[in-house]
């Protein structure tokens, strides 16, 4: 057994995790979060993108206990401890859903479609959830 964080730093790649699903209806959001934390433990350059229904993942005040699920929203606040600070949120997806980042659990950068497209194009690896 080895702990990822103990490995000698090797190649650093730019990883983008694209989140397009609301939390709790499917397992995508939670699985993405797990993989994000693993990538960060391997000292990779990690960014997160939230678009379409993925923006719902960042709302504060989730209470999934009544549907029998673990609340993983607090884990987004641990991302900073993992040196993950590049969280990009699609402006149009927010507007379409009547949301704004004041209701979010963590600070994010709101970007327009063109900026998001450029962020995606600049990655070595893109993983979609």
């Amino acid at each position: 057994m080895t702990m990822a964080g103990e490995e000698k730093a090797g190649t650093v790649k730019r990883f983008l995790f694209v989140n397009r699903k609301a939390p709790y209806g499917t397992i995508y959001a939670l699985e993405a979060l797990e993989v994000v934390l693993i990538a960060a433990a391997f000292d990779q350059d990690v960014s997160l993108a939230f678009l379409d229904d993925g923006v719902y993942q960042l709302l504060a005040g989730n209470d999934p206990a009544p549907i029998g699920m673990k609340n993983f929203s607090p884990t987004y606040r641990a991302l900073e401890d993992y040196d993950i600070t590049k969280l990009y949120v699609d402006r149009e997806s927010l507007a379409l859903r009547g949301l704004d980042t004041a209701a979010f659990i963590v600070p994010v950068s709101v970007v327009d479609r063109g900026q998001m497209a450029a962020i995606m194009a600049a990655q070595d690896v893109v993983l979609s959830f």
């Binding site: 702990m3 990822a4 964080g5 103990e6 934390l37 960060a40 433990a41 673990k70 609340n71 993983f72 607090p74 884990t75 606040r77 641990a78 401890d81 993992y82």
Partner: peptide, 15 residues
Amino acid sequence: NEFQIAPAIRVLTKA
């Protein structure tokens, strides 16, 4: 309790 995860070693050491 605060973050709902057990931190990775690097994060634990820093925190």
